[in-house]
Each structure stands twice: as structure tokens, then as C-alpha cells.
């Protein structure tokens, strides 16, 4: 098998800023003249439904990721990480925001949210590169909970195989927000990066 690209899957819930995160990643890749292709879900799926963004950096035609072939999974929501687990292999870096967003099917009593402590135990046995991050806490530390997506981009940047430099990511963030939100998002990114470095590089 000959694979000349890196596959990143971003998962979460509509409204969490997943598309924005993907676009920033693309802009950063462009700054480094890297080939990048991605695919998003729009429309119906954005009204609070599950959303995924599949991204490949390198020589390839289709952005869709095969089962077991994501190099990095970045999930903005815990249950959504479990939903896309079939795309992971034991080598996959699995970064998961620990803040659940309870679906209406659960709050109305039609189904139950998984027991996460138990889930992480099972997951970590098969996928040792699991990193749990409380992105909301970090975003609040940065100044606003809406920066969760940028915090997670910071964590993503700390993954050793992630091919885009911190400088390019920061530049993309600077270009990607109106001036009054720049500082806030750069701070969120850097806090995420720091937190990521604390754990991920050891995996």
C-alpha cells in the first residue's frame, strides 16, 4: 500500500464551528503551498445534526476517508468521536473534546447518552493515542466559549505528524477573523497548543 497523504477527520455537531476550523486549516496549508482537499456536510445536517469534515493533505483525488485510515481524528464532541471510530486504527491520534452536547433524542428520553468513563477505558485499550481535552474550559480561559473550535485547532497542531507549522496556522487565524476577534482567537489557539503539548507528544 502506497499512501502519499495525511487524513484528518473533524467530527462534531452542527453549529460548533467545524466548517470554520476546516477552512482555517486549508488556508494554512495554502500558505505552505501544500496540496489539500476536504469535504463538508451542509444543509439539513447543520441544524444540530452530526457533522463531519474530511480532509486530506498530500497527493490524492478524493477527500473521503476509508475505514481505519484516518491519521488524526479531532472530535468536538465525545459521542461524535465514538460515532466515527470506524475511521480510526490503533495508530490514529484521537483528540476528543470532553464536553457533551446532549441530543434531543436523549433529553426527551428516547435514547441514552453513552457512559463516557467506560467508553474511554475501552477506547484507550485499542487506540492508545487518545487525548481528552476540556476545550470549553480552555476557551473560557481564553475569554469566550465560542473559541472552542480554535482551541482544538491548537491541540491539533501539537500532534507530531501534523504537517502544517504553528506559524502558518497562526497566520491563517489572523487572516480568518475580523480584527476585534483576532487576539481572542490567537490566545485560544496558543492555549490549545500548550495543553496539547502537555500530553500528546508523549504518546
Amino acid at each position: 500500500m502506497n499512501k502519499n497523504y495525511l487524513a484528518i477527520l473533524i467530527a462534531g455537531v452542527g453549529g460548533q464551528g467545524i466548517l470554520k476550523a476546516g477552512t482555517l486549516l486549508g488556508e494554512a496549508a495554502l500558505l505552505e503551498n501544500k496540496k489539500i482537499i476536504s469535504t463538508e456536510v451542509h444543509g439539513m445536517a447543520q441544524r444540530g445534526g452530526s457533522v463531519i469534515n474530511e480532509i486530506k493533505i498530500g497527493e490524492v483525488q478524493s477527500p473521503l476517508i476509508n475505514k481505519g485510515e484516518a491519521d488524526i481524528i479531532l472530535s468536538f464532541e465525545p459521542a461524535e468521536a465514538l460515532r466515527v471510530l470506524d475511521k480510526a486504527s490503533p495508530e490514529t491520534y484521537l483528540i476528543v473534546n470532553t464536553n457533551p452536547i446532549i441530543p434531543l433524542t436523549v433529553s426527551s428520553g428516547l435514547s441514552t447518552y453513552p457512559d463516557l468513563n467506560l467508553a474511554w477505558k475501552i477506547v484507550r485499550d485499542i487506540y492508545p493515542r487518545l487525548k481528552l481535552i476540556n476545550a470549553r474550559k480552555i476557551a473560557l480561559e481564553a475569554g469566550n466559549s465560542i473559541t472552542e473550535n480554535v482551541v482544538l485547532l491548537g491541540v491539533l497542531c501539537s500532534v507530531p505528524i501534523f504537517p502544517i507549522s504553528t506559524e502558518s496556522m497562526m497566520k491563517a487565524i489572523e487572516n480568518g477573523f475580523p480584527p476585534k476577534f483576532r487576539e481572542l482567537n490567537l490566545k485560544a489557539f496558543n492555549l490549545g497548543l500548550e495543553k496539547g503539548k502537555e500530553g500528546i507528544s508523549l504518546l
Partner: peptide, 23 residues
């Protein structure tokens, strides 16, 4: 001959559906 089978099994969790909803 090139087919290979993965050496691991993806664990299955019972997950709640997350259909799009009225905002």
C-alpha cells in the same frame, strides 16, 4: 492477493441518534 484484513476490531457503542432538529 492485496486484500488485507485489519488486525483490530472497532468497538461498538450504542449511540443516540442526532438528527437535525428545529433550532
Amino acid at each position: 492477493d492485496k486484500m488485507d484484513n485489519p488486525l483490530f476490531q472497532t468497538p461498538e457503542f450504542k449511540l443516540p441518534n442526532r438528527p437535525p432538529v428545529l433550532c
